[in-house]
Amino acid sequence: MKKVFALFLLLAMVLNTRAAVVYTKQDSLIYEKYISQLKAEATLPIGELIVKTALFFRDTPYVASTLDNNQEEQLVVNLHQFDCTTFVENCIALSRTLKTGDYSFSNFCNQLKSIRYRDGKIEDYTSRLHYVTDWIYNNSKRGILEDKTLALGGIKDTKTINFMSTHTDAYKALRSDSKLRQKTANIEQQINNRAEYYVLKKEDINKVGNRIINGDIIAFATGIAGLDYSHISIAYHYNGKLTFIHASSRAMKVIVEPQPLYDYCVKSSKCTGISIFRAIDL
């Protein structure tokens, strides 16, 4: 294991020198610990492996906007802080890394990049899949995820997606770059033209709860104008109820949500329903 870790550190230093990956020593140590503890579970179905990965990060602090601290768009590996999206992305990427049998840091970076960026390529800020709708479309197209919402009774949502282009002051990269603003607007138009956006109404969640399996990705549709989803999490059947694991901005850490999924959604005035996506096993 010491030899493997030494090679990992050498590769990581090379990658960092080339500015291809941004990470800290703390992240490399967490990665080593994760591989050491979870590699024996690699034969599990990927959904179960995603849950074990999510639980590995329980109590990790919630921190927003950890991907937006660099002048140029780069792959950020941050395993010591998460927002709801980076938590889910890392859980999928780490699980896929284990399933491949290649435990190298470079493989994990490639898995994360493939999930986070359009067609797995980093070009600029707009190549990051900011909208969950776009994230699902691209990852489904490349055989990483499968949208289960329609099969579970979801209906097409015809909502216009334009939150980023109409709230550019909320995004540091868009405030002073007219080219990025235009590219963002173009991407939103592509999303709207696809019209492939399905949502299960929140009052119908209990009807299909037994068909949502551990490790499914749950996205929470929102009533906020111009926005598709406001939160994302990992499904988890726990103590006889369907709930989820998430990086919670309320608890300020990764938690197993104490409320059942249905209750959580019904009590939220902004949640209009959920969409369910399943990782495809390797």
Rank of each mutant, 00 (worst) to 15 (best):
Q71C: 02
E72R: 15
H80K: 06
C84K: 00
T85S: 11
T85Y: 15
T86H: 11
F87D: 00
F87K: 01
E89A: 05
C91P: 07
I92W: 00
I92K: 01
R96F: 06
K99F: 08
T100Q: 03
D102Y: 06
S104E: 06
S106G: 10
F108M: 13
C109M: 10
N110Y: 01
K113F: 02
S114V: 00
I115P: 02
K121N: 12
E123H: 11
D124E: 09
S127P: 09
R128Y: 06
H130Q: 08
H130E: 09
Y131P: 04
D134S: 14
D134G: 03
I136D: 00
Y137E: 13
Y137H: 13
N138E: 13
N139Q: 10
G143I: 11
G143N: 14
I144E: 07
L145Y: 05
D147R: 01
D147C: 09
K148T: 03
K148V: 09
K148F: 00
T149H: 08
T149F: 07
L150R: 15
L150W: 10
A151L: 15
K159F: 09
I161Q: 05
I161T: 09
N162I: 05
F163V: 04
M164A: 09
M164N: 10
S165R: 01
S165G: 11
S165C: 05
T168N: 01
A170W: 06
K172Q: 11
R175I: 14
R175F: 07
R175E: 13
D177W: 08
K179I: 15
T184C: 13
A185N: 06
I187V: 12
E188D: 07
Q189I: 10
R194H: 09
R194C: 03
A195M: 08
L200H: 04
K201R: 10
E203N: 12
D204T: 02
N206Y: 07
N206W: 00
N210Q: 11
N210Y: 12
I212F: 11
